[in-house]
Simulated assay, not measured.
Amino acid sequence: MSLEGAVGRRPTIDRAELERLVEAGMSVRELAAHFGVSESGVLQAKRAAGLAKPQLDHGRALPWTLSRTHAQSGPATNLRNLSAAAQGRPVAPERLNTALRWARRLVEQGLDVAYDPVEGFSEVPAAPTGSHVAEVLDRAVKAVEAG
């Protein structure tokens, strides 16, 4: 008895073909259907082949564990946008300008942000040793000016 296509054998994704199809603009969903794998399998293959954009790490800009209710708040969004700019990722000009204006206002007024999981973000006097917002702003401005 012959088994056509070995049972339990994992489908393979040809790297050269994957690269060609990614360059042609094929979506992850389309790639998954083409190769007969899950979308997760395509994403893993793209990472292994160096075809995936590196993921951003906002841990320096948002060092807190945010509750769901605060994750999309103005301060969180502004800090994420500044972080993305600092990491060289393009940010829509209106979003970047909003984040820059917000951060510059706080720094000019000697303020910083604090985070509480229940209360959310608040503006507080900046510590004499420096401001978290000032550091995030500085990294973003340097990256934007360099880029």
Rank of each mutant, 00 (worst) to 15 (best):
V124D: 10
K46R: 15
V91C: 03
L18E: 01
P63Y: 00
A71L: 11
T69P: 11
E119H: 14
D138V: 07
E145I: 14
D57V: 05
S38Y: 01
E135K: 11
R29D: 14
A16K: 10
R29F: 11
S40P: 09
H70F: 09
D57I: 03
P128M: 06
A84D: 12
G8W: 07
T77D: 10
R104Q: 15
P11L: 06
G50W: 03
S122K: 04
S83L: 02
E17H: 03
L43C: 13
L66D: 09
L31C: 04
N78F: 10
F121Q: 05
E119A: 15
T12V: 15
E39I: 08
A71R: 12
G88T: 05
A48M: 10
D112S: 04
L106R: 01
L18H: 00
A52F: 04
A49T: 02
Q109C: 15
E123M: 04
R9N: 13
A16Q: 14
A92D: 12
S83H: 02
P117W: 01
E4T: 15
G8V: 08
R80S: 09
L111Y: 07
G88D: 07
H132W: 00
G50A: 07
A49G: 04
T12D: 13
R95G: 14
R15V: 15
R20D: 11
R10E: 14
E23K: 10
I13K: 03
L43R: 15
S2Y: 12
R9D: 12
G130T: 01
E123W: 00
V141I: 08
V7Y: 14
V113K: 00
R20I: 04
A92P: 12
I13G: 09
S40D: 14
G5W: 09
V124F: 01
V113F: 02
T65L: 15
G130C: 05
L21F: 10
H58S: 14
T129E: 15
V42I: 11
L137H: 02
A76Y: 00
P63V: 01
L111C: 05
N97I: 13
A126I: 04
A76H: 03
L51P: 06
E23I: 02
R101N: 13
Q55I: 12
L3P: 12
P125F: 01
P128T: 04
K46D: 11
L62G: 06
G88I: 05
R104V: 13
F121V: 05
A16E: 15
L137P: 05
L18I: 03
P75Q: 03
A146E: 08
R105V: 11
A71M: 10
A52L: 14
A32S: 06
G8D: 12
D112V: 03
S40H: 12
V133G: 01
W102F: 00
Q87W: 04
E30R: 13
L100W: 03
A86Q: 02
T65G: 12
N97F: 11
F121K: 03
R29E: 14
G50S: 06
G59K: 10
W64C: 13
L79K: 01
V22T: 14
A71Q: 13
D112F: 01
E39W: 06
N78K: 04
R139F: 06
H58I: 09
R20Y: 04
D14R: 07
V22I: 03
V37S: 04
G74I: 09
W64R: 05
A49N: 02
A92T: 11
L106V: 01
